[in-house]
Amino acid sequence: MEWALLKSIYDASPDAITYIDQSGRIVLFNRAAEILTGYSIEEIRMIPMVELYPNADDFGRIWKQVEAEGKCIGVETTIRNRSSELIPISLSVAEVRDEEGVMIGTVGISRDLRTIRNLQNQIRHLETAATRMALASQTAHEINNPLEIIKNYVYLIESGTADPLTIERLGIIRREWVRIAGIVRSLTGMALQPILPQDAIDVRAFIHDYRDLVIPWMISRGIDLIVRIPESLPTLHASVEHLRQVFLNLTLFVVRVMPAGGVFEIRVEVDTDDLIFSFRSGCEESMEDPHPIRTTHPAPESQQEIDLSISHGLVGNLGGALTVSAHSSGGSELRIRLPLGKGE
C-alpha cells in the first residue's frame, strides 16, 4: 500500500524525481525528469551527473551541503538539457537511510522554473513600461496645464488690445508655447501605448486559462487559489493581452504579500454594464495593523506601491477602475471594475 502510494506520487509528479543509490547509479528517474532533461533513464545512466550542471561549482556546493546536513532544500541552480538548453530549476536533495541509519542513496526533486522566470520577466517589462508611462504622464500634466493657462491669458490680452507692439510681443509668447508644447509631445510620445485591440473575451475560459497558468506557482507558495465564477457571463470587449497582464500583475502582488501562504480567492460578478473581478487575499494570522493587505511579512511598502500603481495604470487603460479595501472576513480585497465594452 505504502509503495503503491509512493509510486502514484512518483508517476504523477510534475516535478522531476530522481533516486541515486550509494554507488552513484540512477535507480529511479520519473517521466517529469525525462521531460525536464530530455533523456531517458537508460541514457541518463551513461552521463556523469556533473555534466548536467553547467556550473560545476553549483554541483559541488549542493553535494557538500547534502553531505554536511543530510539535505538541501529549494536551491536554485541551472541544468543543461539534451538540447543544450539551460533550464533554471529549484532543487531539493535528501539522503535516504535504511532502518539502521546507514545511508543507501539520495533522492532529488527538481522543479522547472522557466514558467515563473517568464512571468517575472513579463512583470519586469510591465514595471518598466508603466513607470515610463507614469513619468511621462506626470511630466506632461505638470507642463501642459501651465501652458494652457499662459495661452488662455495671451488670448484674453490679445482680444482686448489693438496696440501693434503688444500684439507682436504676444505673438512671440504664442510661438514659444507652441514650441514647448511640441517638445513635451515628442518627449512623451515615446511612452504612449498603442490603441489596444478589442477582443471578445469569454471570461470563463479566460479565468480557466489563467488558473491553469498560475496554479503550480500558487501551490509552490502554499497559496490556495479559489475561483468563483457565475455559470453565465456576458462577453467582455477588451484587450485580452492587457487583461492577462492585469491578472499576472495582481497575482505577483498577492504572492508578494502572502509569503506565509493562505487563501487567494477570485470572484467575478456582473453589475449592469460592468464586470467586477474581486481578488481577495488572506492568511491565517490576524494583523492589528489596518494595512490594506494582510501579511505576516509585508513586502516593502515601495514595492507594494509600485505593484498597485502598475495595476492602476493597466486597469485604467482598459477603461476600468481598481480599488483596494479590507474585507469583513479579514485579509484584503482588490476590486477591478471593467466596462463590458461595445457589443453589450
Binding site: 511621462a136 500634466h141 494652457e148 498603442p194 485604467g316 477603461g319
Partner: peptide
C-alpha cells in the same frame, strides 16, 4: 494634459464627443 490613444479610445467609448490635448 496627457492623453494616450488608449485613454482617448476609452473616453470615446464612454460618450465623449471630442478629445483634445492641452494646450488647446
Amino acid at each position: 494634459g496627457f492623453g494616450s490613444p488608449a485613454t482617448e479610445q476609452t473616453c470615446t467609448q464612454l460618450g465623449a464627443s471630442a478629445f483634445l490635448g492641452k494646450p488647446v
